[in-house]
Amino acid sequence: MRAARFHGKSDIRVEDVETPKIKERDEVLVEVLWCGICGTDLHEYMVGPIVTPVDPHPLTGATLPQTLGHEFSARVVEVGPDVEDVSVGDRVAIMPAIVCGRCRFCREGLGHLCVRFACTGLSAETGGLAQYAVLKEYQVAVLPDSVSDVEGAVVEPASVAAYGIDRVGIHGGDVVLVTGAGPIGVLSALYADALGATTVVIAEPNPNRAALARAVDVGPVLDPTDAGFADALADLTQGRGADVVAECSGSTPGLTTAMDSVRTRGKIVQTGLHTKPATLDAMRLSERDISYVGSWCYLITDWPRIIRMIASGKYPVAKAVTTQIGLEDVVTKGFDVLVNPTGDQLKVLVSPTAGRA
């Protein structure tokens, strides 16, 4: 089969590899339908290896080269003899986390904090940027007919966004500010809207990304570098500031905007990942009694809930998808476009079968 494999910094190759096979009784073989390119994938491409294992991973034994792709929808083509929850032919969304089930965090229902955490498409034998992948039964969730293959591929980043908002919680009537209009930022805005936020504001300095965010039509999109930003936000919040801020840019300027914009005793969740230390005004945090909370991944049991929200139409995650390409173009039309500072795309989905006989 064809697979996009990460060999090292700036080195992703679409090459022929052996089709994976079921080895354990609780495994599922799937044919990939659509797979998203994630910010984590981009970090690996630009400066990696970071989380892709150079030495054998302690849980999976995987090492480079790594087939990438952890945001994907698929169709089940074979199941192991102990599999009960899915059948051949089912369309599924993939929960890519691989956990030990034995450590303290796994036993407390916090598998996303597993001490031996691994991930399909980052530190495992297979990934979604390939024609086929093998998963554990707990990693696949059946999609209802009302959820498309494209939406199924966005369940993973939609769950990241949802978990971030859930970490701080919002109430009906809250004003929510999202800093950074990347895919996670846009999905965070859509989720906050679904939960009943009165106003959702997106702060994005990149004019191309800002235009894409406006097209999603979830709320005002403002440039945080504009001299009138603070006044515009004050008008939207009656001078109080945002009740909740989801910091999705993973940058010091984004965090500064969050700190300057949240109301006294408001809440900030750090959803965007910082790849280097950030500067934080800790005195402001204390003086204004602000809650600043981290967010990592998602609850690995959350797929059915997120899928139900998508199926209801309340969480329109497909709005974050801006381009769909074939696997052979994954570097030139996917990775290279997404790492371009002009940032004229949100979520790029890749089909391993598009353009093939």
Rank of each mutant, 00 (worst) to 15 (best):
M1S: 14
A3C: 12
H7L: 10
H7Y: 15
S10G: 03
D11Q: 08
D11F: 01
V14G: 12
V14F: 09
D16H: 11
D16C: 05
T19D: 15
P20D: 12
K23T: 12
E27Q: 14
V28W: 01
L29S: 07
L33W: 01
G36R: 05
C38G: 03
C38A: 05
G39W: 03
L42W: 02
Y45D: 03
Y45Q: 02
V47G: 00
V47H: 01
P49C: 04
P49A: 04
I50Q: 00
V51S: 08
T52E: 11
V54M: 14
P56A: 13
P56D: 10
H57C: 03
H57A: 04
P58R: 04
P58C: 06
G61K: 12
G61W: 11
G61Q: 13
T63G: 04
L64K: 09
L64T: 10
P65I: 03
P65T: 05
Q66T: 15
Q66R: 15
G69D: 07
G69R: 08
G69H: 06
H70M: 10
H70Q: 09
F72Q: 05
S73T: 06
A74F: 08
R75L: 11
R75Y: 07
R75A: 11
E78R: 12
V79I: 13
G80I: 05
D82I: 06
D82S: 14
V83W: 08
V83P: 04
V86Q: 08
S87T: 12
G89N: 09
G89C: 08
D90L: 07
D90A: 08
R91E: 10
V92Y: 07
I94S: 12
I94M: 14
M95A: 15
P96K: 03
V99T: 13
C100R: 00
C106H: 03
R107P: 02
E108N: 05
V115F: 06
F117N: 02
A118H: 03
T120V: 13
G121H: 01
